[in-house]
Design a binder for these strands. Structure first.
Lengths: 348, 348
DNA sequence: CATCAACCTGGGAGCGCTCCCACACTACCT
DNA sequence: AGGTAGTGTGGGAGCGCTCCCAGGTTGATG
């Protein structure tokens, strides 16, 4: 919280004014050149560019931000109530995509981890205090107050994933239902007849979507959806174990399981081994996320891949558009759904 | 690269001046109260605090940064020449620690991914352009020009991990040698007689340290170090496979392997399975990093745990100290080594 | 040759803060 | 009473930029 003295590097760097003096022009003109305004004659532009090069001038972005009332930065917000969520490869991939897309911009990436209500409060103050031009929200829960807060203060924002079927805030999401459906179709296509599913927490929309995809595939194959083949869990390994035990109890002849996450699939696999069921011979297994866990299971796990990095990139593109059209109440809120892909491995 | 117009939220928020007017004091006084200066009478302070509360005043940090010539931000730099390196849980843990430690500060965290020399160039300009007060460098290679660049422009910086035994820049590192030693001692202690090691790329200091730890444990047990039991690899799964095959060829009676990373251990494990060697019955296996991979292997992998999150926290503390004592040429460069811990699982 | 739009250009004003100097005011000593 | 600290306080001067207006130049047009 301190207000300790910290003197930065760079005192003594050339300023706009010095460049202007050297080029024999006014401040305004240099500013126009720097910002690529077309209203500058070629001769002047060349002269300024040379002065910039000679002096090694780099604009002071803090001054620019103050004068122009913008931040040249976007925040990536990661709510992290449960531990380790951030360790999911999902996040790092999104971050990679975001970073890659941002590299072509002169925007900076601010990383904000929000663990407590107090930290959320702090973050809200940052927003008011003008620190960012827009916000990327990763994996918000349905009851997170942040999206609505952002909407209220008219801060451009993009979600990764929807909170519900009628999400009002711009978002980029994976085709969860489609991915789940193709996974289950794959199992049915390989001759499995009793395909169960282990779901995520059903108050999360993403879990609902994957379950919907499961149902759609079952029905498309002309089967009835058997509620006893649907075991809800919570995206954790332990949850996967419990759900698998439950499934074996209720439907001992189950011959395939679609788990809505790789981690739950890993839990299920352990139970199957304990119970002496071979994978894939007795029970075929498919996960979701195509995480590192999937590759390292024995046998390697078939899984639905989301193009997570592309999600990050798309989020940035959508956010930039939002920032651009800000205040323009007529513009539509962009909402994107990215395709998924089934990665086949030994488990199915 | 655009200079497109972006108008931020917050125009119309109260300023210092307005708070001063409301409290019936001067600007300077409000500034002193905000920054916790002791040179303010209690009465005045109370009046100002009340005005701040009534107006909902939040300091504009951009203006503050410009006036005070500091950034109130630190950059976390992640060089990422090879893909996926960032997906290692290592990074996310460090980031968590950094975020946690930074939460008590009014510093912001800037995330910078550097993939190409061009991006490094860009980053160097950022630094000159006054965007950050200090830099956290994660997993730099020995030949990375960044640390020296930072040193030259006197930008406070902290490394995670050393580049060599005589690192000049402040750093926070894990006790790699100690961790490796305890892993090998553990294997010897369980009666194994022929303990091999799969190393990382030996031009990386961290790989050297882990190898040194292996050698120390072997010698401490009164054995000679057999060069044929040392197989260099590159921290990849494929490298782990190759190294394991090589070891089996050279020393078929090997009964334990210490791999300098979990991922390499996973590769080794596959080869052992192919060759019909049971783990741990025929060959005991220990990894390093205690990553998710370790938990999901079959049997679960014994591994050396680094307190990665604490590394992140420590890095921030060291950096703050560096920023504080900046320019003070007499102050010592803080260098920290954090202990590791062996996590025992079924593979040994 | 006058007129006017279109185009460039310089530089004042100002973004919201910190820094610091100067000035009051008190308290305490000669 | 005169000095000498020490303590609070106000406000001018800037930080380095962008914004924008006025003014100058140019070239096409009547």
């Amino acid at each position: 919280m301190a207000g300790t003295r910290r003197r930065g590097v760079g005192r003594g760097r050339p300023t706009l004014e010095e460049v202007a003096a050297r080029a024999g022009v006014g401040r305004g003109t240099v500013s126009r050149v720097i910002n690529g305004s077309p209203r500058v004659s070629d001769r002047t532009r060349t002269a300024v560019e040379q002065a910039v090069a000679e002096l090694g001038y780099v604009p002071n972005r803090v001054a620019r931000a103050l004068a122009a009332n913008r931040a040249d930065a976007v925040a990536l917000v990661i709510p992290e109530p449960e531990t380790r969520l951030f360790a999911e490869p999902y996040f790092s991939d999104v971050i990679c995509g975001v970073g890659a897309e941002l590299a072509d911009t002169d925007l900076q990436l601010l990383l904000t981890l929000i663990r407590t209500p107090k930290e959320r409060q702090r973050f809200a103050e940052y927003l008011s205090a003008h620190r960012v031009d827009g916000v990327l929200l990763v994996s918000v829960h349905a009851d997170d107050p942040l999206p609505d807060l952002l909407e209220r203060i008219e801060m451009p924002a993009v979600l990764s994933g929807r909170r519900s079927a009628h999400e009002s805030v711009p978002y980029v999401d994976s085709d969860n239902a489609g991915g789940a459906q193709s996974a289950v179709e794959h199992l049915l296509g390989r001759g499995r007849t009793t395909v169960a599913t282990i779901t995520g927490p059903l108050d999360m929309y993403v879990a609902q979507c994957r379950l919907d995809g499961y149902r759609a595939a079952i029905r498309a194959a002309g089967q009835e959806v058997d509620p006893d083949l649907i075991a809800p869990a919570d995206f954790t390994e332990e949850g996967g174990r419990r759900a698998m035990r439950e499934l074996l109890r209720r439907r001992p002849h189950v011959d395939a399981v679609f788990a809505a996450s790789d981690v739950m699939a890993a839990g299920a696999r352990q139970v199957l081994r304990e119970e002496g069921r071979r994978v894939p011979d007795d029970v075929a297994l498919v996960g979701f996320d195509n995480s590192a866990v999937a590759r390292h299971m024995d046998p390697p796990l078939t899984s639905v891949r989301q193009n997570t990095e592309e999600m990050g990139r798309a989020m940035v593109r959508v956010l930039l558009e939002e920032i651009e059209t800000q205040g323009d109440r007529t513009s539509k809120r962009p909402q994107l759904v990215l395709p998924t892909e089934l990665v086949r491995r030994g488990s199915s």
